[in-house]
Design a protein around this nucleic acid. Sequence first.
DNA 1: CGGGTACTTGACAATGGTCAAGTGTGGTGG
DNA 2: CCACCACACTTGACCATTGTCAAGTACCCG
Lengths: 223, 223
Amino acid sequence: MVNRIALFHGLPRGQIEEIVTTMADQTFDRGQTVLSEGETAEGFFVLVQGKVKIFKLSPEGKEQILHIVGEGESFGEVPMFAGGQFPATAETIEKSRIFFFPRAAFLDLIRKDPSVAMNMLAELSHRLRQLTRLVEELSLKEVPGRLAAYVLYLSEENNSAAEVELDITKGQLASLLGTIPETLSRILGKMSSQGIINVKGRKLKILDRNVLEELAVGGKFVI
Amino acid sequence: MVNRIALFHGLPRGQIEEIVTTMADQTFDRGQTVLSEGETAEGFFVLVQGKVKIFKLSPEGKEQILHIVGEGESFGEVPMFAGGQFPATAETIEKSRIFFFPRAAFLDLIRKDPSVAMNMLAELSHRLRQLTRLVEELSLKEVPGRLAAYVLYLSEENNSAAEVELDITKGQLASLLGTIPETLSRILGKMSSQGIINVKGRKLKILDRNVLEELAVGGKFVI
DNA sequence: CGGGTACTTGACAATGGTCAAGTGTGGTGG
DNA sequence: CCACCACACTTGACCATTGTCAAGTACCCG
């Protein structure tokens, strides 16, 4: 199980066995909070099975999803290295199995084995790139452009297939795109009626990839 | 000089001398591009003196500043650990002196000395926290709220002084707040006319901190 | 089959961007 | 030392995008 975690790739068996003795193995139902923004951290988490959303809430209750954690990915490491509290909240959106690694043992491991440090540096760098892209999308593109980029991304992930399936609800997608379900629904409707995509529940079919690509780089969306 | 770089704190003298032999020392005039989004990376940079903005450009030319690099800070590390290209562009906004550290020698150093890895993990974590906050601001607050948060941040940096001075132009501040100079100008004007702040060139005086704090957490701005 | 959640649709309001035309203001060269 | 020029900033009129509120429909799970 631990072997499948990217963070521990290349680690000798002995050290894996050592770190396993310190970790905790927890199961969460869907909709449970794993960690809350502002909490002090005693370690970090790895999602083994299920799905977790990392998000921020505004005082008025609007939610911005920063990231959907996939299986094998870690989260909640920021305070371990930078001190302080968690910068966002993590909540399961499916029944999930999560490993918790306490701070001290993991820091020891890093000092002993540089490959863990390198893996962690790669992971954090990857996360920085994703967040950079999120800022770009939110600030420089309108909602249709963000949606187009997301649909194309889903397609790439799937060998550029024309048919893709959302693995989150449309409401969650709206929150990930920095908008609300109503707006997303309207835009999906418009794209449908213009023959750009075909929407059937969570299944999307790309009908005109060129228009999507045009939108995704910042082009305007004419009604 | 190298001693003052946070990344190398705690490093024995011998290793500092070693890394110094591999680095390049460059000077840039104001307005020069240090690295461009999409370029392949051969190393990373440390700003020794001056000021650098890290930003994204939309196809229409709108700019979103992600970060203003301060003296002693590094930038451009993401591709070193995650592979690929620079996710954003870096340009000097003042005459600057910049050290460049080639990839290979630095990776060697990390493998030899875990404290450098720890410093770098702290740096990247810190950056993740900042970007998380930027996403939050852009997505969950309106411009007056972002401005209020920025002014309060400047004040904190300065022992909560009531008088603060912008160290960037208002145009750059607009880009950092995810808006345009016109909008920023109008909001500064409104805040002024309501006695919340006093604006004189780049000098701002906080007159009503409570209102600013209210705005910064997401409160509404009544005209 | 029922209940709740997810989603859709409509009318409306408002934030903030665009375009255009100024008004300073600091730095440089004559 | 002053005039000029470029650039930073301001202000006004307008409008597009998107959020709010409200109501209704579809759909999945138990």
